[in-house]
Design a protein around this nucleic acid. Structure first.
Lengths: 196, 196
DNA sequence: CAGGTTATGGACCAATCAGTCCATAACGAG
DNA sequence: CTCGTTATGGACTGATTGGTCCATAACCTG
């Protein structure tokens, strides 16, 4: 019983993710967003309320997608080491990514711990990523591939940290081969027989 | 034969580093800088030319200091693994760092490859860090501590990536214990007998 | 077709941005 | 002490910021 939206909300958020990932929150002007999302100024404020609200929704959506991407990589590949390597590199190193970037890492670097709502989103996303990594590490241990002395949860946190580093490296121009080599070197210590 | 500056240039740059590290380049307003550096507006423009120039000088200074800090850690500690761990964690995880942050990682995340002068500074700094790591890795190999099959340069790049990840984690609120544990797990693969 | 409701776009707003101007103050050289 | 030079701070600038207002357009229900 009213005029319907002319734009698709999901597509608009996907575009907003690109704009925010490229410029960061502060440096992405509302005009950049309007242009990038292909909607009018009033539509943006009507549909999303606020630049900040839009960012929070974009960050949530981005984290969901990123997690799904990693879970898929973790499930599909056969040896645990290969699965984890694939998950670490999921969505990194393409030419597009140099243009875009990671909203999660970007928001951590930009806001540190200064924004409670950003904190909550990032903490929740981090916990899920760590859990997904830890589960696969646990499988690798029971499968005899990884050192049983490892603490899967601690390894999961290490892998999240490593992934952040890989994202920074990718944003800084590193190619996929370089990223893969770094990931493999950092993963060597998981194998059975590599105990300290 | 004229009126001398009332402020110390080095101290002013050190303050600028703090301001830029906390807010990023774009979000650090000239007023933030003036206030943080404790100098007048005209003095800032007179002495440093430009917000951008000031940032480039701050970035260069920060990279120098960070490299020196890591080199010191690499030289002092005795076993190579301990030295590298110390270098990875140098200057991270204190309460202050949550407030400040890393200008290098910050500029990479904020500018990606978009600013040629920032690129040049970061590329040069990265090369020096990688070389410092690689040298210590080489010593670790000849000393029988690390696997001789390792490529020191590749390991150096991995360590730089890892350090970026640790910086992001620290900025996101991780404590020193957590960072140390992650570093140790990623370093396990360097030890002799951990070959794939 | 008519009426209520919502979406849209362009004009508009105060606030802030980076950067400049200028009158004044503080110094060293003569 | 005086003069030339440079540093300083406050007022100021045009441009841009995030956000609002309002008249109009487009739709669904009756």
């Amino acid at each position: 019983m009213a005029r319907p939206s002319e734009f698709d909300r999901d597509e608009a958020i996907a575009s907003a993710i690109r704009v925010f990932a490229r410029h960061g929150y502060e440096a992405a002007s509302t005009s950049d967003l309007i242009e990038g999302m292909g909607i009018g100024r009033q539509s943006l404020y009507g549909a999303f309320g606020d630049k900040r609200r839009l960012f929070l929704e974009a960050l949530r959506r981005y984290s969901d997608g990123s997690l799904a991407q990693m879970r898929q990589a973790l499930e599909s590949a056969e040896p645990a080491a290969a699965a984890i390597e694939a998950a670490l590199l999921a969505g990194l190193g393409s030419a597009d990514d140099l243009e875009t970037g990671c909203l999660g890492v970007g928001s951590i670097v930009e806001f540190s711990r200064g924004d409670p709502e950003v904190n909550a989103l990032n903490d929740a996303a981090a916990a899920l990523v760590v859990a997904a990594f830890a589960a696969r590490v646990g499988e690798g241990i029971t499968g005899g591939e990884f050192d049983p002395a490892l603490d899967p949860d601690a390894v999961g946190r290490m892998l999240l940290t490593l992934r952040s580093g890989l994202k920074v490296a990718a944003r800084g121009g590193a190619g996929q081969d370089e990223l893969r080599q770094a990931a493999r070197l950092a993963l060597r210590g998981l194998a059975v027989g590599s105990g300290r």
